[in-house]
Structures are given as structure tokens and as C-alpha cells.
Amino acid sequence: MIELRHVQKQYQSGSHTTYALHDIDLSIEQGEIFGIIGHSGAGKSTLLRSINLLERPTAGSVVVDGVELTALSTKQLQEQRRRIGMIFQHFNLLSSATVEENVAFPLKLIKTPKAEVNQRVRELLELVGLTEQSRKYPAQLSGGQKQRVGIARALATNPHVLLCDEATSALDPQTTNSILSLLLDINRKLRITIVLITHEMHVIRSICDRVAVIHQGRIIEQGPVAEVFLKPRHEVTKQFIEQVADSIDFRDEKLSPDSTILKINFLGESTYEPILSRVVQETGVTFSILQGTISRMKSTPYGQLVVKIEGPRQAADDTVSLLIERGLDVEVYEHGLG
């Protein structure tokens, strides 16, 4: 659906070259929600805007829907961009136009017949829940309503791809959740591919299927959200995960010679199964929970437990082996001195 191959973006200032993007390879599938997360200045906005060539790469190729955008003429590129909608952090609405006029604007630009414009606007305002606000102006709307107008406008030309440039960063948490729910609903109903950038792991965890982590213009980690979230490899990724995960300091935890601290990750239906209880009955160790959470990544349940088990070292090792055999991800934090 979307292919970025060896994409680079560099800026020249005299003899000094700055790389905003360096050798980016990404493949995004039809119908998925793909997240790109990074700190400010990491290159995520440049990467997103490279997909529709608002930022033209210095090198590499961008293919969307089988069409290599980097090989098109200006006129051909304008036509292809109709298949790529975009929403922005600060909405970018026309302040002197009503809600319905804002949504209709892209259709009028391509000289769509008036009856078709009116029908499409009605459909989109119903989709985003703004039918009753159609005659209002942006100044009369809340931040969440403005973003809903932006989403409706971006969908006006029936795009195959929706790019979201920090679409929830200017919103409060409750409104953010409502916009994320709307994007998820749009993805399910229209099967539109959504690519979003953010610096908030909560956004990634809530609606994305896969995620790429960008740092200093490079993709340092990518994969399914659950895999990246539960088994982060890069230190930057671990920092983002700390945004949504409570941390616990075990340095002051008193360990007996027969103590072992484990971190256990559950994913999917195993989250609700008594696997740990069954295993400790088999191995004869006892356990106490130091920390535990159950949440969801998009529609997939997951859980994380940090437990202290008490028992001989061999029994502790057997417990770890059985938990892994039964499909859980287990990390040994610390053994006692037994």
C-alpha cells in the first residue's frame, strides 16, 4: 500500500549538511493503522509529509497505491494527492467558512457537481457526529469539534490513505480519546489506511496495529505494537513506554536467599487465565504480587505482573520454564543469594 525505500531528506547550509531523514525503509499495509512515534525534532513530521511529498525526499522512492509519487510530474502528483487525506494538529480550518463549507472546500476545488457536494458533506458530517453543527463557524466550536471537521474535510475526496500530523496533541485527554475512537471507527467502516505521528505512547497503544520509532532521523525499531510495547529493544522506545507504564524500584525490596523477582507479560486471552496460579502449584513456590496492570492494545488485552516468588532456586527456575512453555514472556529481574 505504502512503500518508502531508502528515503533521505537533507538540508544544506553552506558546507554543512543536516539529515532530517536517513535511509528510511517502511512498508505499510492496506487498511492498517500505522503509528510513528518520536521526540520533537526526531524527524517524524518530515517522514509523514514525505508520504504525500509535501516534503520531497532528497533521495529514495515513495510508492502509494502502486504509484511511485517521486516519479510523477507536478500535475500527476496533484491528482494522486486526492487519494491521500491529511489532518493537522492545529486543524487548519477556514475561519470565515462554516463547517459544511470547510468540508465542501476540497470538492469544490476539483469542480464536483453541487448536488454531489451536498450529498457528500451530509454523509461526512453524520460520520463524524457534526450534523447539528453544519452552519457554525470554527470559532464557535470546541477543539474536538474542530478536529472532527478536519477529519471530515480530509475524507471528502474518498482518499485511500489518511495522514494524521499530531492530530490529538492540542486536545485534552478526554477529547483525545474521543478522536482516537472516531479514527478507529473510520478505519473499520471505510477500511482506509491511517498513518499517524505522535509523541504519546497512549495514542499508539490505543489504536495502532504497528509502530515505528524514529530517533535522529532513523527508524530504530518497528513492528506490531504488542511486540514493541512488551519487548522494547532500544532505550528511546523504553522511555516512551514509561509514559504509560507504572515503574517500580526494586532496590529497596528485601530479598531472602530463596527470593526471585519476575516480570511476566500476558497477551490475548491468556491475560485472563490463571496460568501463574497453576504453575506455582506444580512447582511448590509461593508468590506475592509487587505490581500488576491489565489494559488493552487496540482490541487486544494484555497484562503485566511483577511478582516475588519464594522457593529453592531450582523450583524458581522450573517456574520460569513452565511459564514460558505456556506462552508467557518472562524476565528474571533479580535472584536472592540462595
Results as ranks from 00 to 15, higher is better:
E282W: 10
I261Q: 06
G292V: 10
K231L: 12
L130N: 02
I33P: 01
K9F: 10
L180Y: 04
L94M: 15
K146V: 04
I275T: 07
G327F: 01
G66P: 10
R278Y: 06
I110N: 03
R218Y: 09
I207G: 00
C164A: 02
K136Q: 14
V149F: 11
L322A: 05
T283S: 03
I28H: 03
A152Q: 08
L255A: 03
R191H: 15
S134K: 15
I87N: 01
Q10Y: 09
H6Q: 14
F91Q: 07
H39S: 06
H234N: 02
E100L: 14
G268D: 02
Q10I: 15
S270Y: 12
Q133K: 15
I264T: 07
T260M: 02
I2V: 11
E68C: 01
I214F: 09
P106V: 08
Q243W: 13
N158M: 04
Q133D: 06
R120I: 04
T237I: 10
A316T: 07
I186Q: 06
S270M: 04
A139M: 10
V7P: 04
S61T: 15
V332C: 02
L163C: 01
E101H: 09
L182K: 00
V236H: 05
A245G: 05
M297P: 05
L69C: 00
P312S: 06
V62L: 01
S96N: 10
Q12A: 00
G150D: 02
R326E: 02
S13D: 09
Q291L: 13
Q291N: 15
V279G: 05
S95K: 13
L290Y: 15
Q222G: 04
V7S: 01
E235D: 13
F34S: 01
L130Y: 10
R81S: 11
R205Q: 15
S169Q: 05
G41D: 05
R56P: 11
H234Y: 01
E32T: 08
P312G: 08
S73M: 03
Q239T: 13
I28C: 01
G223M: 05
V320I: 09
R49V: 15
R296D: 00
S13G: 00
R83L: 12
V332P: 06
P257E: 00
R191M: 09
G338K: 10
P173A: 01
G66D: 08
V149Y: 06
K263M: 08
Q30N: 04
R278K: 13
R205T: 12
E166S: 03
T271Y: 11
I28N: 04
Y272V: 11
D65Q: 14
K114P: 10
T237S: 03
K298N: 00
N177K: 13
Q133N: 06
H160I: 06
L53I: 09
K263C: 04
V330N: 04
P257L: 06
A245Y: 13
G14P: 04
Q119P: 09
Q281D: 13
Y333Q: 14
K146E: 15
N187T: 12
T58I: 11
R210T: 02
